[in-house]
Design a protein around this nucleic acid. Structure first.
Lengths: 135, 135
DNA sequence: GTAGGAGCTAGAGCCGACTCTAGATCAAGC
DNA sequence: GCTTGATCTAGAGTCGGCTCTAGCTCCTAC
């Protein structure tokens, strides 16, 4: 008999809130509909946690919930649609790369600005060693 | 007499909507309160456009509007608070770097998954050259 | 003079992704 | 028996960042 986890335990392990876990389930983002204990409480397996971990990474990298749902549906359908899954993942990979490139460009400008202010502060110190704020 | 730009022209040049431009102004994100033509229409200068360009980069890299407002206020106050501006920019730079590292970690997992599916598809092709989907 | 088009203000609406609430159930410990 | 605490459902609320609407004023061109 494999051990199962309560929603609270899964929340603790994944870092998601119990609210978010129920929300993800409603949104169709669980590979298998969660099993229930007699009484109705959700019982998660290790596989569920592993799947959630992947979903968390996809969300953290900006994949919208509907796309994760689509991917989940493909996995649920079982073997035969690997091409579709691959296409979806590759599309997301490209999106993430674009995000990173954009951030990198932003970083360039921010670095430039930081440099400007560092120069200003250095000049102030050099020219007015006892008056660091230029007043 | 320096030439000025209408809100529509600025929208076109910055890629922001006229709505967003007015929204930014309400949010206190313009270095100088925009000048108005007689009749009340906003007249933007090249400096305004340049400032907006910086704000767009800050937003694109995830700086929340209130932080941009804070930065704007510092700039508006004039010389003397360069240390604060530098601190704010450095904080944001650190945030952007964290974002990029997180994305990079996500990318690793996505790449791994892509690899898994590529292997699966290759095996299928090798073992069943006339039955690429394994059916 | 009148129709179009750009602009104005104040304020409402929207979207995604949660987050929280109310009110009920249930099991365990005192 | 009763409290406590975790869980349940359905549905409402929140938050950030715009986006859109209504109703008005201008200016320009015909």
């Amino acid at each position: 008999m494999q051990e199962t986890l309560s929603i609270g335990q899964v929340a603790e392990r994944t870092g998601l809130s119990v609210h978010a876990l129920r929300f993800y389930e409603r949104e169709g983002i669980l590979a298998h509909p969660v099993r229930r204990a007699p009484g109705g409480n959700r019982r998660y397996t290790e596989d569920d946690v592993e799947w959630l971990t992947l979903c968390i990474v996809l969300r953290a990298s900006g994949m919208p919930v509907p796309s994760i749902r689509r991917y989940t549906e493909l996995v649920r359908e079982g073997a035969g649609n690997e091409r579709d899954r691959l296409a979806l993942l590759k599309q997301h990979r490209a999106d993430v790369q674009v995000q990173m490139e954009r951030l990198s460009e932003c970083l360039d400008l921010i670095n430039y600005k930081v440099g400007v202010y560092e120069d200003i502060l250095e000049d102030v110190l050099t020219e007015h060693p006892c008056d660091p704020m230029g007043n």
